[in-house]
Design a protein around this nucleic acid. Sequence first.
DNA 1: ATCGTTTGAGACAAGCTTGTTTCATTCGAG
DNA 2: CTCGAATGAAACAAGCTTGTCTCAAACGAT
Lengths: 188, 188
Amino acid sequence: MVASREQIARAAIRRLNADPAASMAEIAESAGVSRATLHRNFASREALMAHLGRMSTESWTQVLDDAGLAEAVADGSPEALRAAIDRLCHHNIRDVEEFGFVLTEHVVFEQDDELAQVVERCQTREQEFYAAAQKAGVLRADLPPVWIGHMSYGLLVGLREALRRGDVAVRDAERLLRESFLRGCGAS
Amino acid sequence: MVASREQIARAAIRRLNADPAASMAEIAESAGVSRATLHRNFASREALMAHLGRMSTESWTQVLDDAGLAEAVADGSPEALRAAIDRLCHHNIRDVEEFGFVLTEHVVFEQDDELAQVVERCQTREQEFYAAAQKAGVLRADLPPVWIGHMSYGLLVGLREALRRGDVAVRDAERLLRESFLRGCGAS
DNA sequence: ATCGTTTGAGACAAGCTTGTTTCATTCGAG
DNA sequence: CTCGAATGAAACAAGCTTGTCTCAAACGAT
């Protein structure tokens, strides 16, 4: 069995998604390798967490790229911005399914300055996009972009919990996220 | 110094809000008592957590009572239900400020069956209220009540994070929560 | 088949956390 | 003031986790 570094990392993510407090021994077991091999690939738990954090932030960056935020902002038309929001919801869902546990594990980022910077850059990108969407009249202007970012984060946490408990089907997730984000629960 | 059980519990909450992984020694220090006294009041960490969990669920129950959900459902008028939603947002905010760390510490509840039942009862109460609000046309009917519950939870997590990082002022919290919950971020 | 590499199992030390106990000190009610 | 109760400091054992190391076995390319 050739257990590559990345395979181990993916197994670690799966395990930590189910049990955020899993020990290195438990992670190794989930990955189907011995504790020794796990440590040969990741010198310490901190190193493993840093790697997972990096994977997570890279995935987030990828989400923002895939959603075409920059292009939508450059375009500036309401249609382009609206479409970007839809894509953002779409890609965020796969991100949540994959890296869910990172959402509430702030410790991962607080340890590593470099990682914290990437996170902040992603947040800034998002907020600038939200601000552009406000300017174009796609998002309401009476909510601070920074709050819209936190709200979006919160909705993802709630969605993850709903999926984890089986209260929401994956196929409904995108619609619920988009509708809740854009229109809320109030009857129009 | 008379350090009552409840004073210690409150100090523990404050500490755990700032550092969810705090050890018993750190909690004792934050409470201004020795480790021995902490253990005299709470035989084990599990017992302390169970007590904090109980406080949290009692507070949640109190929030639902104070918001007058049952009365609003009995009344049934859109105005009464709308007012109850406002009160729910209002009381939820003080709950989040106080018991924030519990939001993402599911472990607290998964340990204790009795606690898990109380949580479920609170969730059911909320969802029944949401269903009534949908029936009265106050909340849109195309979102499952169970999702509205998770969404509300998610918004509270996001709000807590926003408050914790100083991105949102306490005085704005209620309005942001209410507006986001009811109308979302999309421009009408 | 062979040789170098990778792996697993296990032992090991170190550190931290938890929970208990002891004992001297302090507090507070009477 | 006095005495019982509560407290703090310290030591202690036990358990878990982390990280290292060794060695034999399995693997894989040649």
